[in-house]
Amino acid sequence: MKQKQKYIAIFLFLLPALLLFVGLLIAPIIMSIYYSLFNWNGLRALDPAKDFVGLKNYATLFNERIQFGSALKNAFILAGLSVFLQLPFSLALALALGKKIKGERAFLSIYFLPVLISTVVIGQLWLKIYNPEYGILNTFLRKLGYEGENIRWLGDQSIALGAVFVPTLWQYVGYHMLLLYAGVKGVSPELREAAKLDGCTDWQVNWNVVIPTIKPIIKVSVIFAVTGSLKSFDLIYVLTNGGPMKATEVPSIIMINQLFKANQYGIGSAIAVLLIILCFFFAILIGFVFKERDIYGKK
């Protein structure tokens, strides 16, 4: 009887969180899966018998015009850059700041500042930097002696993607740095001292002691970097909205355009479902990769 009461108490305590979880996360996902099976504009009432198209919306995503595959490729490039460029840079900063250097707190605040600023403000800032005529970048190049045509950083198909990724990566360096910094600070000083006594250099201490110790945090950073790249939207929307001519499109941009510009609610929902699946897949994959390489050899 007591056991039963205990379970009822657990259930009642968990119920509010469960309701929130189901209502705010599970239900919208199920709704999105449902809507992704219909050819529906989201405005009129849905007629399940008439509007049902099965998996056609998913196939439509990969046609020549929508080019979801190309947008996905852009998101993967961003994810790759995040993992192999942004995170090592953030880690280097975290390790440097973790050494109790002079002005540690000031540097911490400065690097974290872009995370605190609104993305729209950052977008406007970089729009000014990239302006072909008066932008600081072209002005700087002209000072260096560049005499060619204005470089259209956000208007040239061949360079726009790179130009959009620079601020996207820059904005979250501070975020990952702070996560990793917390990990670095959590490493036991005794471990460092022991390594030093064994004759390790600073580099060897970091490589052999600090980094392996903060692997769980690195894993979290990698998951955030990859899933964040797959979901990237706001800064790209402000800078180019996927242009010029789809050169900087990522899945979320296509999703919004299909939902609210083309009134293709079914296709937009299909993209949402694919993004959810991809994010879960990569989160599990990254978890698996890091588990395999645990320093203690455990799985």
Binding site: N41, R65, Q157, M245, K261, A262, N263
Partner: peptide, 20 residues
Amino acid sequence: MPADEAAIYLEYVSSVYGGA
């Protein structure tokens, strides 16, 4: 044009301006 057609139309117009 209806929204879905207008979206396609504008994509082509953008490609025209970009020379593609």
